Amino acid sequence: MGTVVALDTLLDARTVWRGQATPAPDSRQPTGHPGLDARLPQGGWPDSALTEILHPADGVGELSLLLPTLVRLTQAQQRVLLIAPPYPVHAPGWAHAGIALPCLHVVAAAQREALWAAEQCLRSAACAAVLCWPTHADDRALRRLQVAAETGQCLGFAFRDAKHARNPSPAALRLQLDADRHVHVLKCRGGMAPAVPIALASSH
Rank of each mutant, 00 (worst) to 15 (best):
Gln111Ala: 10
Gly19Phe: 06
Leu101Gln: 09
Ser203Asn: 08
Lys187Gly: 02
Ala162Arg: 12
Arg189Glu: 12
Pro194Gln: 15
Thr135Asn: 13
His204Glu: 12
Gly191Phe: 03
Gly61Lys: 07
Gln29Asp: 11
Gly98Thr: 01
Ala24Pro: 00
Ala126Phe: 14
Phe157Ala: 10
Gly61Cys: 02
Leu145Phe: 11
Arg143Ala: 15
Cys132Ala: 15
Leu73Thr: 00
Ser64Asp: 15
Ala126Gln: 15
Thr15Ile: 03
Val89His: 06
Ala21Tyr: 09
Asp178His: 00
Cys103Leu: 07
Cys127Gly: 06
Pro134Glu: 11
Ala114Ser: 12
Leu65Phe: 02
Arg144Glu: 12
Val80Gly: 08
His204Leu: 02
Ala6Cys: 05
Leu7Trp: 11
Ala126Tyr: 14
Asp161Thr: 01
Leu173His: 01
Val89Cys: 09
Ala171Gly: 04
Ala117Cys: 13
Leu175Cys: 00
Phe159Asn: 11
Arg112Asn: 10
Phe159Gln: 14
His184Ile: 02
Arg160Lys: 07
Ser64Trp: 13
Asp138Pro: 02
Ala199Tyr: 05
Ala21Ile: 01
Arg123Trp: 10
Leu101Arg: 06
His136Arg: 15
Pro168Tyr: 08
Ser124Asn: 07
Arg72Lys: 10
Leu11His: 11
Phe157Thr: 04
Arg144Asn: 06
Glu62Lys: 12
Gly19Asp: 09
Trp133Arg: 08
Thr69Tyr: 00
Val183Ile: 05
Trp94Asn: 07
Ala57Gly: 00
Leu70Tyr: 03
Asp180Gly: 01
Ala158Gln: 09
Val89Arg: 13
Val80Glu: 02
Gly190Cys: 13
Gln29Met: 13
Ala129Val: 03
Glu150Trp: 00
Leu66Gln: 12
Gln20Asp: 10
Leu145Val: 07
Glu113Arg: 05
Ser203Lys: 06
Ala162Thr: 08
Leu66Pro: 05
Leu104Glu: 07
Gly152Met: 01
Leu73Asn: 10
Ala114Trp: 03
Thr22Ala: 08
Val80Met: 05
His33Ile: 04
Thr31Gln: 02
His105Leu: 14
Arg79Gln: 14
Ala95Arg: 14
Leu104Arg: 01
Thr9Lys: 12
Val147His: 04
Ser27Asn: 02
Glu62Leu: 02
Val107Asp: 11
His96Leu: 11
His204Lys: 11
Leu10Arg: 12
Leu200Ser: 09
Pro86Glu: 14
Gln146Val: 00
Asp139Ala: 08
Ser202Gly: 14
Gln77Gly: 04
Asp8Phe: 07
Gln146Asp: 13
Arg18Trp: 15
Arg174Asn: 11
Thr3Cys: 08
Gly152Leu: 06
Arg72Asn: 10
Ala162Leu: 06
Ala171Asp: 06
Gln78Glu: 13
Thr69Asn: 01
Thr3Asp: 15
Ala21Met: 04
His136Ser: 12
Ser48Glu: 06
Ile83Glu: 13
Arg28Cys: 07
Leu175Thr: 00
Thr74Arg: 09
Ala13Trp: 13
Cys127Glu: 11
Glu62Met: 01
